[in-house]
């Protein structure tokens, strides 16, 4: 099994988050259709050369956020009811969350942050 997933060593995020993002992105782009069967945890671990527990954690978190569903003994599938928009929003949410935290630490107000963001979208 070769999923062509490439993980980055310079990415500061933990590997399980990278795997989650990669899968979410594939779902968001429509490359992995709702109902599609995912590689088993062991298959993906062997393919990516990362530990089973890391892939397991990524699958668990994806399940929690509703991107995939796992059926006992059958495997994991892209959620039939997955809203591609939601998945996209979730991806965006991570960046926004980061921005909000940094802004707060710098003492920026809500309006200042919104203005700063507007500057970027208008560029």
């Amino acid at each position: 099994m070769n999923t062509q997933m490439i993980l980055s060593q310079t990415d500061p995020r933990p590997i399980y988050v990278q795997i989650m993002d990669e899968i979410s992105r594939r779902v968001a782009l429509g490359d992995w259709q709702p109902g599609m069967r995912l590689p088993s945890i062991r298959e993906l671990a062997a393919d990516l050369k990362v530990s089973v527990i890391t892939v397991k954690r990524a699958y668990l978190e994806l399940e929690r956020s509703g991107v995939i569903v796992t059926q006992q003994g059958k495997g994991s599938f892209v959620n039939q009811e997955v809203s591609v928009d939601d998945v996209r929003m979730q991806e965006l949410a991570r960046y926004l969350d980061n921005a909000a935290r940094v802004a707060a630490a710098m003492g920026m107000s809500h309006d200042e942050l919104v203005d700063a963001l507007a500057d970027y979208t208008n560029r």
């Binding site: 062991r42 062997a46 050369k49 990362v50």
Partner: peptide, 12 residues
Amino acid sequence: VVDEMMRVMEDE
């Protein structure tokens, strides 16, 4: 070597 070790782990 690491790849081979992970290949072993396909068998649970």
